Simulated scan of single mutants.
Amino acid sequence: MSAPTGLIDVHHHAIPPFYADALGDRKAIPGVDYPTWTPEQSLEVMDAHGIAAAVLSVTAPGVTFLDGPDASKLARRVNEYFAELVREHPTRFGAFAILPLPDVTAAREELRYALDVLGLDGVGVLTSYGHRYLGDPEFEPLFAEVAERGAAVHVHPAAPPSRDLATFDLPVSLYEFTFETTRTAASLLFNGVLDRLPDLKMILSHAGGTLPFLARRLTYGTTIGAYLEGRAPKDVIGTLGRLHYDIAMSANDFALPALSRLTGTDHILYGSDYPFMPAAHTTENTNGFAEFDGWTDAERAEIGRTNALRLLPALAARLTA
């Protein structure tokens, strides 16, 4: 099978130098080695793997290590940096704006600036802020505005808020990230957010964490606890299938069959997780994407490119200008 070309990578991280300086000695993700990054490194990896464009985002902890105006100022600086990179490389980079959550008022202000003034391609959020997951009522006005605007929102895991991270002395991204994605999806489901906002274009990282495996189990909410009557989603499987999923760290014969069973290939997107996963993993993940025999060539083209362009019209317009 020939190597894929023209890929759109929707899970590709950036580490602006001033962001790394602000983070300082704080451990960005517990147990995870913090990589070095430059735009030139990304372009080199992209060129080596047939990636036409990468949509940049900042991973955990976002700007949550700062408070109030300081968080908003750093988010604004990151978003303006992203906009400048997109101006310099309009056909190679897109960007998901970072928002200064959990301050929803500030986040909505930054959303408008990032989309209306900077022209970024969507927004990126974490699975939780403090002890609140994305289904918390506090966050719904933000997601309602995102949905109304037709913008895409990329959800990236954060370190779990209620866990002794030293229990197993293992990096949280090794396994906890998948559970965090599942937890925030469950909160969105059982707080009714996804039913009330059916047009929300939400992309979950890493093939949805454990959602493909647990999807049927999540239909048993009212069977297990009658108090969930009235809170349970109308159609758990259908709602999960309506979400979008990137395949960062997941393009393998264990994850892809389950994900493909849960959602259509029109809701799956290519992702690399570079540079937090090194170039060698981009090779492995891209090969897994190319070699998986559960998709037709037409479906593979959807996943690798056209699904992302449909979700990200500003990027699509730059690529066809």
Rank of each mutant, 00 (worst) to 15 (best):
A151W: 08
A152F: 02
V153L: 11
H156G: 10
H156V: 05
P157V: 12
P160K: 03
S162L: 08
S162Y: 09
D164Y: 09
A166Q: 05
T167C: 03
T167W: 06
F168G: 13
D169T: 03
D169C: 12
V172T: 04
S173C: 14
S173A: 15
Y175V: 14
Y175D: 01
E176T: 02
F177V: 00
T178A: 12
T178W: 01
T178S: 11
E180G: 04
E180C: 10
T181Q: 08
T181E: 04
T181A: 05
T181V: 09
T182W: 03
T182N: 03
T184P: 07
T184G: 05
A185W: 00
A186M: 13
A186W: 07
S187P: 01
S187R: 09
S187Y: 01
S187F: 00
S187N: 06
S187A: 13
L188N: 00
L189K: 01
F190R: 00
N191V: 00
G192Q: 01
V193N: 00
L194G: 01
D195S: 10
D195Y: 04
R196M: 08
R196W: 02
P198Y: 03
P198C: 07
L200F: 00
L200A: 08
L200P: 07
L200T: 04
K201R: 15
I203T: 06
L204P: 11
A207I: 06
G209Q: 04
T210S: 15
T210L: 12
T210F: 13
P212C: 06
P212V: 04
F213I: 11
L214N: 05
R216E: 15
R217N: 14
Y220T: 15
G221E: 03
I224N: 11
I224G: 00
G225L: 09
A226Y: 07
E229I: 08
E229V: 14
G230N: 04
R231E: 09
P233H: 08
D235L: 05
D235N: 15
V236W: 10
T239S: 05
T239R: 08
L240N: 01
R242K: 10
R242D: 14
L243K: 07
L243R: 08
L243S: 10
H244R: 12
H244S: 15
Y245N: 06
D246E: 15
I247F: 11
A248L: 10
A248W: 08
M249I: 15
S250M: 14
N252S: 10
N252P: 10
N252C: 14
N252T: 13
N252D: 13
D253I: 00
F254G: 09
F254N: 13
A255R: 05
P257L: 11
P257W: 06
L259D: 05
L259N: 04
S260V: 10
S260K: 15
R261I: 01
T263K: 13
G264H: 11
G264K: 07
G264I: 02
D266L: 04
D266A: 14
D266Q: 07
H267S: 08
I268V: 15
L269C: 11
Y270R: 06
G271L: 11
G271K: 09
S272Y: 01
S272V: 05
D273V: 05
Y274E: 06
Y274Q: 02
P275V: 10
F276I: 02
F276S: 02
M277D: 11
M277Y: 13
M277Q: 14
T283K: 10
T286G: 04
N287S: 13
N287W: 05
N287Y: 06
G288V: 06
F289N: 03
A290L: 08
A290R: 15
E291W: 07
W295H: 12
W295T: 15
